[in-house]
Amino acid sequence: MAKSAPSIMKCENMFCAGCGHSLFDRLLGEVLTEMDIVGESISCSDIGCNHMYQYSMAVDTVVPPHGKMGAAMAAMKKVRPDKYIFSIAGDGGAYAIGLGETLSAATRNDNVTFFVMNNTVYAMTGGQMAPTTMPGQYSSSSIKGRTAEEHGRTFDVVKLMQNLEIAYLARCTVTNAAEMAKTKRCIKKALEKQRDGKGFSLVEVLVPCPTNWGLTPPEAMRHIENDLVPYLPLGEYIDR
């Protein structure tokens, strides 16, 4: 079957070799194109590596301050309720500096969609520890490995949000073609929840950061499968 880049992807992306963001972005581009909602979509960018989607994907975009997507999207949906409003966020933006805004959007059940790229580090600034950094993981601000005693426990969005009255919560990854297909279904489902007015949807995507993990891209994929997924299980947790 013929397969080529969706027409919404306008140029080469700026991500590092083997970056998971670019894999996700293409999947989202495919979904937007297949649902024929590119012209009905307005995205809200985080600041961090994830924001570079705006240079390769032809979709209208607002870039609020780092992490404030939950607040910005609430306003965007109020001003243009007929549009699809979604954010491609990073784990630092959505879960650390912007956790208040993310959680407020979820508790209000705003009819918007969050795609959170979880690569367990602050990638753009050089791989510092994030709330999502795994136990034992080395980062440039946890040079002997993260420990619960010294740095606190690792953040898990499912534990945080599973009892909220939101429309959709899923965790997926991009490590192989089968997972990519599942991720694509989750993206579509999240946007369909918004279309149907069901409310807040969040899809967390475990993505590799070979650059900051110090691994080759295939090794980074194996790291997700072997070390992240057992701790942060994949699946759909809320679907209503």
């Binding site: 079957m1 080529s4 992807m9 080469e12 992306n13 070799a17 670019s22 293409r26 192989n176 073609a177």
Partner: peptide, 16 residues
């Protein structure tokens, strides 16, 4: 022509 290379390429190198 299974398309896995297209699917797994972050940089849109392949066209099936």
């Amino acid at each position: 022509q299974c398309g896995v290379c297209y699917t797994m390429c972050p940089d849109l190198v392949f066209e099936i």
